[in-house]
Amino acid sequence: MARRHLSSDEQALWNALARSVRPLRPGTRLPEQPSLPLPASGAPTRLKGQPPAPMRPDPPRTPAKVLDANWERRIRGGTLTPDMTIDLHGHSLSAAHVRLNQSLATALTRDARVMLIVTGKPPKSGGSGGDPRRGAIRGEIGHWLETSSYADRIASVRLAHPRHGGDGAIYVILRRKK
């Protein structure tokens, strides 16, 4: 199978990810640039007559870092109580980005641990006539969080429990002050 080189955007994302990883064994190095396998036709492969895989909404791109069992149980059970909530849906992308950064700064000064960020539901798959801009904030929120000046203070990003908005919201768990 042929291999392709990363685009400049993919390379920048890889470098950001590589900088955020701590090796299990000291002295272990990550490869400088991974090469991705490319299908022979350049298109996703599927068997003839097989329907295409359904499109699922992408979760925020910020990696879900490991939390202890207590946090996981509280998230799964919906017993997590957000210290701060912001609602971004209905805002323009630039206004939502500014509001997110202001809210992160406020949460950190208040020593908040859990932020609930309402982004709005992801776009509905299938059917035509829907708003093509639907889900724009949700599509960008992961990138905004990982490139934020507060990224090192974010412990984890998770989809919210249905009682807090489900697919239309995320929890941002902030690290304690050092």
Rank of each mutant, 00 (worst) to 15 (best):
D58F: 11
D58L: 15
P59R: 08
P60A: 14
R61H: 08
R61V: 12
T62G: 05
T62Q: 05
A64M: 13
A64F: 12
V66C: 12
D68E: 13
N70Y: 07
W71S: 02
W71V: 07
E72I: 09
R74E: 11
R74S: 07
R74Q: 13
R74T: 03
I75C: 05
R76K: 14
R76I: 09
G77I: 03
G77A: 15
G78P: 13
G78H: 11
T79Y: 06
L80F: 01
T81E: 13
P82R: 06
D83K: 06
M84P: 03
T85P: 10
T85K: 08
I86T: 01
D87F: 07
D87K: 11
L88M: 07
G90D: 03
G90E: 05
S92L: 14
L93I: 06
L93C: 03
S94Y: 14
A95D: 14
A96F: 05
A96N: 05
N101F: 12
Q102T: 15
T106Y: 11
T106H: 11
T106M: 10
A107G: 04
L108H: 07
T109Q: 13
T109M: 11
R110N: 14
R110A: 10
D111G: 04
R113L: 12
V114E: 00
M115I: 00
I117C: 01
T119F: 05
G120E: 02
G120Q: 05
P122I: 03
P123V: 03
P123R: 03
P123D: 02
P123Q: 04
K124A: 15
S125W: 03
S125P: 15
G126C: 13
G126I: 14
G127L: 04
G127N: 00
S128N: 11
G129I: 12
D131E: 10
P132T: 07
P132I: 07
P132L: 08
P132F: 08
R133P: 00
R134K: 12
R134H: 13
G135L: 00
A136W: 01
I137R: 02
R138T: 12
G139Q: 02
G139A: 08
G139W: 03
E140V: 03
I141T: 04
